[in-house]
């Protein structure tokens, strides 16, 4: 293995992505992702200093919509397929105060 990323990196990334990974999965993902990053090292030596990043294929600008109301979704239809709902709202386990 080329050690482009470590098991600790993989564990951190899994936390960021909110994915549970078992110790075996950490081992496997570390090996697989490391292999990919090793393959992706082909661009490491390109001289990209004066290259503009390309984020969108078709150059458009100022795509805007008029401030006009459209009909809303039906709350009952939406909440009917929600994993948990109560009192017209979506119910979730306690959120622990990470954000406001």
């Amino acid at each position: 293995m080329s050690q482009r990323l470590t098991a600790a990196d993989v564990a951190k990334v899994a936390r960021l992505a909110r994915l549970n990974v078992s110790p075996e999965e950490v081992e496997r993902y570390t090996r697989q992702l490391d292999g990919m990053l090793d393959h992706f090292a082909d661009i490491d030596n390109l001289d990209l200093a004066n290259v503009e990043p390309m984020t969108q294929p078709y150059p458009l600008v100022n795509v805007l919509r008029a401030d006009v109301e459209q009909p809303c979704l039906d709350r009952d239809e939406v909440l009917a397929v929600a994993p948990a709902a109560e009192d017209g709202r979506f119910r979730v386990p306690p959120s622990g105060g990470l954000h406001e």
Binding site: E86, D87, R89, F90, R91, V92, P93, P94, S95, G96, G97, E100
Partner: peptide, 8 residues
């Protein structure tokens, strides 16, 4: 927020 049982 802290110690609540659930959120809506």
């Amino acid at each position: 927020i802290h110690g609540s049982e659930y959120s809506l």
